[in-house]
Simulated assay, not measured.
Amino acid sequence: MVVLREGICPGLNQDLVQALRNVDIRTVEDLVSANLEELAQKCSVSYKALIAVRRVLLAQHAAFPVSCADLYEELLSSTAILSTGNHCLDKLLDSGLYTGEVTELIGGPGSGKTQVCFSTAVHISCQLKQSVVYIDTNGGMSANRMLQMLQAKTSTMEEQMAALQRIQVFRVFDVFSLLKCLQNISAGEVEMACVGTSVKALILDSVSAVLSNMLGGKQTEGMSLMMQVAGELKTISKDLSVAVLVTNHATRDGSGQLRAGLGQSWSHVPRTRVLLHRVKRPGASSGLRLATLTKSSRQSCQVEEEFDLSGWRGPEDTKAGYSGKRKLECDNPGVG
């Protein structure tokens, strides 16, 4: 609700504002919905002046209808899909990570959340030639492990170093540092080491590491901080057209079923959620994981896919660019 005051539009001077207040017209909504002929007589002001002021206020503050076709065209032009580099996971995610959305990986310790984050960051930086912001909140980041993954993708030292430069790492270990980091990214104050590439992915591993100890009991501040983090992540994804991937721990409910941590309020933040399990069966690889889609606006939920963390690269790990809405070739890194 916008309060009428001098200077918010041409013609609305202090005398007119005061005259309107005298007849209980205090907001833009009050003015545009009033009968201007009667209002002009009550206030002893020019009817034409009121018409002119209302026209400007409507142009500045009213919502105008947009057709669904226009909205769809805007979606197509602004949305890209980034492959994770794993065919099975991409299949669950309806081709990959969508810019403008928050995707969440949940699972217990050892479920492979951090490994998936590493592999996704490496694929986006090496194969798609796009920059990644990687926020590490639990000390799990390993540049050596990322280099090993890159060495499996390319034997050229120059390409390996270029890919590492496209991954900007921030280490934050409390929620206040995380918020400051996210606000800097949102404000465009983060400079990438590799100039000329656009940031298309933000990976936060993990969001629960800095929020879990702030929630529950008599700690009322924790909920507010959690929603501030959620707001910043959504702003970055929408305003900067970035694909956001976060990890979260899993807990068990009363029936023993695994569910995402951080409670009901956080559950509305991610657009897509995937639960990771370690697969334990005779003869199975130690890297075998089961991924279950538990939340999605595009796919049927409770669909499952198995994949092997130790064999992340596969026949689908090609040098294609984005898939889906907008596809860019890997050898055209300046586009984005």
Results as ranks from 00 to 15, higher is better:
320 A>N: 05
301 C>V: 15
309 L>V: 09
263 G>T: 09
77 S>H: 13
266 W>A: 01
100 G>P: 13
147 L>R: 05
8 I>G: 12
31 L>D: 11
210 V>G: 05
172 V>H: 11
9 C>T: 03
160 Q>W: 03
51 I>Q: 12
161 M>R: 09
102 V>K: 12
145 R>A: 06
124 I>W: 00
318 T>N: 14
198 S>G: 08
250 A>L: 13
147 L>V: 03
39 L>Y: 13
64 F>S: 02
95 S>V: 15
123 H>F: 10
46 S>W: 11
197 T>M: 09
75 L>G: 06
301 C>A: 10
38 E>C: 07
296 S>W: 14
129 K>N: 11
300 S>N: 09
95 S>E: 13
128 L>G: 00
220 T>G: 02
246 V>A: 05
184 N>T: 03
279 V>P: 00
9 C>V: 04
330 C>L: 08
25 I>E: 07
64 F>G: 01
38 E>A: 07
108 G>K: 04
24 D>S: 06
311 G>N: 13
84 T>D: 06
285 S>I: 01
321 G>V: 04
199 V>T: 02
96 G>C: 02
276 L>M: 04
178 L>E: 07
263 G>W: 01
25 I>C: 07
153 K>E: 10
279 V>Y: 00
136 D>A: 07
183 Q>G: 12
329 E>D: 15
172 V>W: 11
53 V>E: 04
118 F>H: 03
159 E>R: 12
231 G>L: 06
275 L>M: 13
330 C>Y: 14
249 H>M: 14
171 R>D: 06
99 T>E: 08
312 W>M: 02
214 M>A: 08
118 F>I: 00
278 R>Q: 13
135 I>V: 14
173 F>N: 08
158 E>W: 10
113 K>F: 11
111 S>C: 03
290 L>T: 02
186 S>H: 08
45 V>W: 04
292 T>L: 03
315 P>F: 00
243 A>F: 15
321 G>C: 06
270 P>V: 06
72 Y>F: 02
111 S>W: 00
246 V>Y: 07
77 S>F: 12
262 L>I: 11
218 K>D: 13
100 G>Q: 12
180 K>L: 09
146 M>H: 01
63 A>L: 13
52 A>E: 09
3 V>S: 10
224 S>W: 04
310 S>W: 05
239 D>S: 06
10 P>S: 06
113 K>V: 05
18 Q>V: 02
55 R>D: 04
195 V>G: 05
252 R>L: 14
203 I>F: 01
53 V>N: 05
132 V>H: 06
326 R>W: 15
81 I>F: 14
53 V>K: 09
87 H>T: 08
1 M>I: 10
78 S>C: 13
4 L>V: 08
65 P>G: 01
115 Q>H: 01
126 C>W: 00
42 K>R: 15
207 V>R: 08
186 S>D: 10
182 L>Y: 13
245 L>M: 08
45 V>M: 02
3 V>R: 14
147 L>T: 05
99 T>D: 01
183 Q>D: 12
301 C>M: 14
31 L>A: 11
223 M>V: 12
4 L>T: 09
252 R>F: 08
74 E>S: 01
296 S>P: 15
219 Q>T: 12
61 H>P: 03
38 E>H: 11
21 R>T: 09
24 D>G: 04
188 G>F: 01
95 S>K: 14
324 G>K: 04
109 P>G: 12
276 L>H: 02
144 N>Q: 12
34 A>M: 13
